[in-house]
């Protein structure tokens, strides 16, 4: 049986704008991936535990509140602590361009801004997922 790519789609922080997260979840499903949708108001700890228990290949996060510099790096840090640095982590939402270098230096593989087509996200995952 062909291995399915498993993706955690999570909204860290408190903002409730999940249109983007839900559209991405659907697009990844339609690209044949298994998406575990964890919903709103997720702490980095909850996201990381979900990623471990679900044996996820990818953690995709969306945030529109401006708390990305605080929350995204924390997820990568916790994954490292658990020996799960092979999990691909990326983010999207309203994120100023000037924050991207910082986020990448903290291990966020990519940051997708507003207007990114879902196909770009699908391609990115397929190209970068570490366990095939």
């Amino acid at each position: 049986m062909e291995r399915k790519i498993r993706v955690i789609v999570a909204k860290p922080g408190l903002d409730g704008h999940d249109r983007g997260a839900k559209v991405i979840a659907r697009a990844l499903r339609d690209a044949g991936m298994e998406v575990i949708y964890t919903g709103l108001r997720q702490t980095p700890e909850q996201i990381v535990q979900a990623a471990l228990q679900e044996d996820a290949d990818v953690v995709a996060m969306s945030i529109l509140s401006g708390a990305h510099n605080h929350l995204f790096p924390r997820v990568v840090e916790l994954l490292k602590e658990k020996g799960a640095e092979d999990i691909l982590v990326f983010g999207g939402g309203v994120i100023p361009e000037e924050d991207i270098p910082f986020l990448k230096s903290k291990g966020i593989a990519e940051v997708f801004g507003p207007g990114t087509p879902t196909s770009a996200t699908v391609e990115f995952i397929k190209a970068h997922v570490k366990r095939g």
Binding site: G13, T43, S65, G66, A67, N69, H70, L71
Partner: peptide, 15 residues
């Protein structure tokens, strides 16, 4: 939530 709630971390005054 008050500003000192754990879930408020990183969100206070943002939006």
């Amino acid at each position: 939530y008050d500003s000192d709630h754990p879930l408020a971390a990183g969100e206070v005054g943002k939006v």
